[in-house]
C-alpha cells in the first residue's frame, strides 16, 4: 500500500512540475511572439497570426498558472475575519467554501466542454484550420486541475481536524 501511495504522490508531484513548466513556457512564448511582432512590424513585415498565437498561448499560461497559484495558496484572499474565528468554525467555513468552489468548478467544467464542442467550427482568426476550441478548452481543463487541487485541500482540512 505504501509503495502505491508513493507512486501516486510522485506522479502527482511530476504533474505539478510539468504544469508549472508548461505555464512558464507559455509566458516566455507570449513575450517572444509579441516582441517579434513589434520588431518585424517596424521593418514593414506584418505577421498576421502573431497576435492571435500570443493570445492563445497566453490564455493557457494564465489558466495553468492560476492552478499553480491555487495549489500553493497564492491566490489573493482576505483572511481578516477568518483568522479570528474559533478553530471549529474555521473548519466548517473552509469546508463550506470548498463545497461552493467545487460546484462552481464543476459547472465551469461541464459548460466549458459544452462550449468547446460548439466552438469547433469557429475559426481562430488569421490562422487557417485552427479552431477556437484550442482556446476554449483551456477553461474546462483548468477547472479540472483545480478540482484536483481542491480535493487535496479538502482532504488536508479533514485530516488535520480529526
Amino acid at each position: 500500500m505504501d509503495t502505491l501511495r508513493n507512486i501516486v504522490k510522485r506522479t502527482y508531484a511530476g504533474m505539478c512540475a510539468v504544469e508549472a513548466a508548461l505555464s512558464a513556457v507559455c509566458l516566455i512564448t507570449t513575450v517572444v511572439v509579441i516582441f517579434s511582432l513589434a520588431v518585424f512590424r517596424s521593418f514593414d513585415i506584418p505577421i498576421h497570426w502573431a497576435l492571435d498565437t500570443a493570445l492563445l498561448v497566453f490564455t493557457w499560461g494564465v489558466f495553468l498558472g492560476a492552478d499553480v497559484a491555487f495549489r500553493e495558496d497564492k491566490l489573493v484572499n482576505v483572511d481578516f475575519v477568518y483568522t479570528r474565528l474559533p478553530g471549529k468554525l474555521q473548519t466548517v467555513v473552509s469546508l463550506f467554501l470548498y463545497l461552493l468552489m467545487a460546484v462552481f468548478l464543476i459547472a465551469l467544467l461541464y459548460h466549458g466542454i459544452d462550449l468547446s464542442i460548439s466552438t469547433k467550427h469557429r475559426s481562430f482568426q488569421g490562422i487557417p484550420h485552427l479552431s477556437f476550441t484550442w482556446v476554449t478548452i483551456s477553461m474546462p481543463i483548468c477547472s479540472f486541475l483545480m478540482l484536483i487541487s481542491l480535493s487535496i485541500k479538502v482532504y488536508r482540512t479533514l485530516v488535520t481536524r480529526s
Binding site: D44, H48, L51, Q125, G126, P128
Partner: peptide
C-alpha cells in the same frame, strides 16, 4: 501601397 484593413481573411 500598404493599405490597412480589418485583420481577417475576407478583408485581406
Amino acid at each position: 501601397v500598404r493599405i490597412r484593413t480589418a485583420p481577417a481573411p475576407a478583408w485581406l
